[in-house]
């Protein structure tokens, strides 16, 4: 079992997302330090992909910035290995199927394990296609995180029962990105997932303010914030770590006590 469960132990988890190499890997490291220092319970690290079809414009932009700096998957493994010596917070990768497939699925997860990663999120690998990836992830002790969407309906039970690490609940239709309000049906969706789930669940997509994050953490076991943080990084570049830290602190202080 990976360390992911620790993120949810005795607390509501706050899960920030950043894209590795945006604007450069040294800044990414610094941001990871700030995230941990300011109370992130689990960190989602994006490995950039040229054509991220599940992302809105903000995270697409981060992917382009990172790739135009020549960042590669190997560079990211190396960065993670280095930062792992300093931080203990559980970390998962978020990337696309082809990044893992082209690396060699087995080699990819072997490197994940060596670097000290705990899980993987692949938004373009649904339940039906996951075995190809999950069997290798499992071999190397990496949790393959499953996603549930508002359209999942009768699929929820099967997905939730077989989920590892935690379940990523997609709050609303569409791609990643900040939304001014989140549909009230999330609560119902979380309820359905919880009925079958053996692992914790966290809500993501569209969560951009401390209030929204707190509200989602109240409903589920945790909340995931991506675009709002990536936007700050896009805005401040190398100076982003401090601003990201501030933002995370404001979210954590709005968080419900367990």
């Amino acid at each position: 079992m990976s360390k992911i469960y620790k993120a949810f132990l005795d607390k509501k988890a706050f899960i920030p997302f950043i894209t590795c190499g945006d604007p450069d890997l040294d800044t990414t490291k610094e941001i990871i330090r700030e995230l941990e220092k300011n109370g992130a319970d689990l960190i989602e690290l994006g490995i950039p992909f040229s054509d991220p079809t599940a992302e809105g414009p903000v995270i697409q932009g981060a992917n382009i910035r990172a790739l135009s700096n020549g960042i590669t998957t190997d560079d990211i493994f190396e960065m993670v290995r280095e930062i792992r010596a300093e931080v203990t917070v559980p970390m998962v990768f978020m990337t696309y199927a082809n990044v893992v497939f082209s690396y060699g699925i087995d080699s990819f997860f072997a490197r994940c394990a060596k670097a000290g990663m705990d899980g993987i999120i692949l938004p373009d690998v649904p339940f039906e296609e996951k075995t190809e990836f999950e069997c290798y992830a499992e071999r190397h002790g990496i949790d393959f995180v499953s996603m549930v969407a508002p359209t999942s309906e009768e699929r929820i039970e099967r997905i939730a029962q077989n989920a590892k690490g935690f379940i990523y609940i997609v709050s609303s239709l569409g791609v990643t990105g900040e939304r001014s309000s989140i549909n009230s049906s999330v609560k119902e969706l979380v309820g359905k997932v919880k009925k079958s789930a053996k692992v914790p669940c966290a809500v993501g997509f569209g969560i951009s303010t401390p209030q929204q994050a707190a509200e989602m953490a109240q409903i589920a076991d945790g909340a995931i914030v991506g675009s709002a943080i990536v936007r700050i990084i896009g805005q401040y570049g190398k100076d982003a770590p401090y601003h990201v830290g501030e933002f995370v602190r404001s979210i954590k202080s709005a968080y419900p006590s367990f």
Binding site: T53, A97, P126, F127, E128, E129, M147, V148, A149
Partner: peptide, 22 residues
């Protein structure tokens, strides 16, 4: 048998969960 829409090793359904029921 378990995987939909394969042509040899090719094909499949590598899409976000949101689109699966569609």
């Amino acid at each position: 048998q378990e995987k939909a829409g394969r042509f040899g090793i090719h094909g499949g359904q590598y899409i976000p969960e949101t689109l699966m029921n569609a």
